[in-house]
Nucleic acid binder design. Structure first.
Lengths: 114, 114
DNA sequence: TGACATACCTCGAGTTCCTAGGTATAATAT
DNA sequence: ATATTATACCTAGGAACTCGAGGTATGTCA
């Protein structure tokens, strides 16, 4: 992560679920899309993503299936479930109130720098 | 932390420095102000705050001094240094790009819920 | 045939936060 | 007077999370 990696903490699940709400995707693809959509601010590592996907699957938030790519390779696609969509909704609200709270604290501090 | 505690990661230093940029403060006071300014979204724990203050002091971002309160108790006040202000500036930029990136990913996903 | 990109996975180390405990003093209640 | 609560500081150990580094396997391209 370029922007202090520790900021990422806690938002990874939100980001993954958000990506999957836009359609089924496989792991490697999610990493690339995150990097692209965030304009290279995020670069989630495989060692981070795969365990998250496995946890989400165990909890029923996503489901996986294998599918052969045009190239002939087998990819593991993930699909977000209704439960996952509910979870996404909650995480979005958490993020909204969290970022709002941070901005509120920042607003009360020294004048914003250029 | 009410909003998924793990979201806090990485933003604690930013929040503390931001508070101190508004004037010298002591630990207990910072916890109360954070809770108030964030409208009870944050409730930073002592076990989190004090080690952070010690680390910031070791790195020269803040300085501390003891001062007797009107009540007669001794309080340990922290003052942000020039180095600390620089650090605050960096952290603010990190936060700005991070939150922007998250919102960019969210924007590309399912329609925002109410 | 060898090198590289794709695609998946796991383990262990490092970081960060919190719980739970401790110490001490001032204010308040009994 | 004494007990309880609030203030105010601190630390150690555990839990959670991310990442680096490594492993496996297949497809592409020189």
């Amino acid at each position: 992560m370029k922007a202090d990696k520790s900021l990422l903490s806690g938002s990874t699940t939100l980001l993954v679920l958000s990506l999957l709400s836009g359609g089924d995707k496989y792991g490697y693809q999610m990493i690339a899309e995150l990097e692209e959509k965030s304009d290279h601010t995020f670069s989630m590592k495989e060692g981070t993503l795969y365990p998250i996907l496995h946890t989400l699957e165990k909890s029923g938030a996503v489901e996986s299936y294998e599918k052969e790519a045009p190239t002939g390779r087998t990819r593991k696609y993930y699909h977000i479930t209704k439960k996952g969509l509910r979870l996404l909704g909650e995480k979005k609200e958490e993020w909204a109130s969290f970022s709002q709270a941070v901005n509120a604290v920042l607003a009360g501090s020294a004048p914003a720098m250029a």
